[in-house]
Write a protein that binds this DNA or RNA. Structure first.
Length: 477
RNA sequence: GCCCCUUUAGCUCAGUUGGUUAGAGCGCCGGACUGUUAAUCCGUAGGUCCAAGGUUCAAGUCCUUGAAGGGGCGCCA
């Protein structure tokens, strides 16, 4: 096939009557004369001008929304308004018809619910095209950020034999015949006869393994699929999602917070530059969506929100400071919180996080030094004996975007914590060995990639920012 | 897992205190149109009112159960 030029590249060139070929899918066909052709490389469609003499009536009728075609012709400055250039067709080859009576996508606005049900075709819409181009650039920016800073990309296992992380319910991995599961004499499932000879699950986090890498390579990060079998039915949870988990050696909680804040500012700045057209489209979309909402429910304009995050420092405060703010807050005193703030040590609910982020500070907030009883065993114990060196980054509209901590590097303290929380130490010797041999202060965090995409695109349901969402009751495609 | 809302044409939605033949915009189909921009103009067709059961002289409208979808909460990234 002759070489195609992507529309994104053509739009950067000078239209001087040069002959070019574009290949894509018809969005609309106006006036029996103007094809809006989109090839996915950019949100902008190329206008193909068709001479009626050129094509037979039959071929003209076949140019409908969704039709795939190859158009060759001269690229000239557009005669009409609305686009800078257009392609005067000399040859049009239809490679795939699209029956307009059955093709679900019409040249009009569709609801996100409808497009979710037609998930196999939603890529062909402006909204989802923009989302998935931005998703790509965000992923690339994350790799670039870490690579530029000397981090090594480490792949941690997807099938894991470790069940001590406690980050959530896990999906079992087995090759056993589910109709005839082998049992021991005591009636327990006999995992010794399974493929790996032990109980295995899909990973809920690569952190513990990433620590092993960091305590040799210095700075590492993971970026891989993560699975949680929680029965979560919300707009910000998935059963299969992608998580980024950097882990840094010889570092404390402040280094960890600085890294997370710098990373978010870098990747958001990157897409503000690279994805200006897609972001502008999504910003306008969000604005239109919000027109029907009461003032109080309207979101901050998307570009304004993103620029603000890039240009301003995040608010940093401890759990205890946040607790005092919340306890003395109006909604708490007036009994507006479903979960009143009364006793130090309670876990903060999303209504509290939203108050801090959206009402009190109106910017991303980093909460640190949580009570030890509401956090995981591996987080470093603070000198007060009551709190741990944890940090959560909360952002408007989403809540928790990042969860991290300085890790407990002192063997005796870690051992005591594991015993206290009933974590079986004998199965975790591989983890404890990093503290037995050459331990050092280190820290890391987990970033939910889809939550980042949600935040950047201004979408509201996490199922719309991953190509093939998995959630309770649904695993299409 | 808990709570709330929705389900009417291909899509997005109206549909009054229960009352005759259920409507609109867009799309589709037919026609017009060589500078359109979700093109426009004219015309036609298109409905098991989510399903089952109930109340009533009468149900799209009220009640019960179920299904599907959406939102909030919890768990968390």
């Amino acid at each position: 096939m002759n070489k195609k030029t992507s529309i994104s590249i053509l739009l950067k060139s000078k239209p001087e009557g040069q002959t070019v070929t574009v290949k894509g899918w018809v969005r609309t066909f106006r006036n029996n004369q103007f094809i809006a052709l989109n090839d996915g490389s950019i949100i902008t469609s190329m206008q193909i001008v068709v001479d009626r003499e050129l094509l037979s009536e039959d071929v003209l009728k076949r140019i409908t929304p969704g039709t795939a075609l190859i158009a060759t012709g001269k690229l000239i400055e557009s005669q009409g308004r609305g686009q800078t250039m257009e392609l005067v067709a000399e040859e049009i080859l239809i490679t795939g018809d699209s029956n307009p009576e059955t093709y679900p996508l019409q040249p009009k606005r569709h609801s996100l619910e409808f497009l979710r049900k037609n998930g196999h075709l939603r890529f062909r819409t402006n909204t989802f095209g923009a989302i998935f181009r931005i998703r790509h650039h965000l992923a690339f920016a994350i790799h670039k950020f870490f690579n530029d800073r000397g981090f090594f990309y480490l792949n941690t296992p997807i099938v894991t034999g470790s069940d001590a992380e406690g980050a959530g319910e896990m999906f079992a991995v087995t090759a056993m015949d589910l109709g005839a599961i082998p049992r021991t004499e005591e009636g327990e499932i006999d995992y010794k006869q399974d493929f790996f000879g032990k109980e295995t699950n899909l990973t809920v986090s690569g952190q513990l393994e990433a620590e092993l890498g960091a305590l040799a390579l210095g700075n590492v990060y993971t970026f891989g699929p993560t699975f949680r079998a929680e029965n979560s039915n919300t707009t910000r949870h998935l059963a299969e999602f992608w998580m980024i988990e950097p882990e840094i050696a010889f570092a404390d909680l402040k280094d960890d917070m600085d890294l997370a804040e710098n990373m978010l500012q870098y990747v958001i700045g990157y897409v503000l530059e690279k994805c200006d057209k897609d972001l502008a489209f999504l910003a306008e979309r969000l604005e239109n969506e919000d027109k029907n909402k009461p003032q109080a429910e309207r979101a901050q304009p998307l570009l304004e929100k993103l620029k603000f995050v890039v240009e301003n420092e995040f608010e940093r405060l401890t759990y205890t400071e946040a607790f005092n703010i919340l306890r003395n807050s109006k909604p708490n005193k007036k009994g507006k919180f479903a979960y009143p703030i009364d006793e130090w040590g309670v876990d903060l609910q999303s209504e509290h996080e939203r108050y801090l982020v959206e009402k009190k500070f109106k910017k991303p907030v980093i909460l640190t030094d949580y009570p030890k009883d509401i956090k995981a065993f591996y987080m470093r114990m603070n000198d007060d004996g009551k709190t741990v060196a944890a940090m959560d980054i909360l952002v408007p509209g989403i809540g928790e975007l990042i969860g991290g901590s300085q890790r407990e590097e002192r063997l005796d303290v870690l051992h005591a914590r594991m015993k206290e929380m009933n974590i079986p130490t004998d199965e975790m010797q591989w983890y404890l060995d990093t503290r037995v041999y050459g331990t050092c202060p280190h820290a890391g965090f987990g970033l939910g990639f889809e939550r980042l995409v949600l935040f950047v695109t201004g979408m509201s349901n996490i199922r719309d920012v991953i190509p093939f969402p998995r959630y309770p009751g649904s695993a299409e495609f």
